[in-house]
Design a protein around this nucleic acid. Structure first.
Ligand code: FES
Ligand code: FES
Lengths: 142, 142
DNA sequence: CTCAAAGTTGACTAAATCAGTCGGGAATGT
DNA sequence: ACATTCCCGACTGATTTAGTCAACTTTGAG
């Protein structure tokens, strides 16, 4: 299973975006400053988010990014999969030789990891970006 | 979050142990052969499992390992924490400077990762080793 | 029209982590 | 005695992660 800074940053940045994009596109520089994430790293991340049509970009001066849909329409699961954080814990393929006993059938823990996958994925599928971006959070924080 | 081969192997090996230790202690060599896991790696893992009193060891010829309690009394969460796979997704401490915005208060995603922690941990706390080790699984597999 | 501010892209790298190995023990049943 | 097993710390190669760099394109403002 993978859940690293890339996914974490993606969620943080999009939450930020959701909070601020009402007044026009938000530049990565702003997000970088507010969330304290490397600008160059953010660029990498947003490239992927754009490919998955989660955000759209506006180039040029005063450009930046905008959500492509309502925050209440974006599942966290989409965000994570956009930045390649597949929540997959079964390893059958990789471990066909090592780990999973090589016999034709699934190893004794296969079912477990499968269930875990479902458990975690359902968590991220239920969570929407709008669940994280509330104005009152802003007030609380500043 | 961390969930790597070490934790996976620990669970596989203990499931194996749970199935076979009725007829005396089970040697790591046997587990290694049955589960196709490196013997030397298993040694590392079982050292930790022993420190956490999940298994007990019998040295010498015909020695091996035995579960220290009933399989129905061992939570997977214990196993994973024994081998240092802490399921912790919040990163406040590490990221106090980078990532979490540096302000005194928690970043906008803190609550989310906290919930995720709870979600995953409760999964592993509910699962018992006995849930994985059933005789009929054996029949199914061989 | 020019320039600065933004996004676009691919390649690169230092550091950390993982998975596994090695070598040399110490206990113990036969 | 001795093979078998556990015990333990140190080591290493491979992979992944987090982040950087350099060079480019697009566009709004003045
Ligand atoms: S995890 Fe699928 S066979 Fe082992
Ligand atoms: S995860 Fe705790 S402050 Fe960011």
């Amino acid at each position: 299973m993978k859940l690293t800074s890339k996914g974490r940053y993606a969620v943080m940045a999009l939450t930020d975006l959701a909070l601020y994009y009402k007044n026009g596109p938000v530049s990565l520089r702003d997000i970088s400053l507010r969330q304290n994430i490397s600008l160059l790293y953010l660029e990498q991340i947003f490239l992927k988010l754009r490919k998955y049509k989660i955000v759209e970009s506006i180039r040029g001066t005063k450009g930046g990014y905008r959500l492509n849909r309502k925050a209440s329409d974006i599942r966290l699961s989409e965000i994570l999969s956009a930045v390649d954080e597949n929540v997959k814990t079964v390893r059958c393929i990789k471990h066909l030789k090592k780990g999973c006993n090589g016999k034709s059938i699934k190893c004794n823990t296969h079912k477990l990891w499968d269930e875990l996958d479902g458990h975690i994925n359902s968590f991220f599928e239920k969570k929407l970006l709008s669940d994280l971006a509330h104005k009152n959070d802003l007030e609380k924080r500043f």
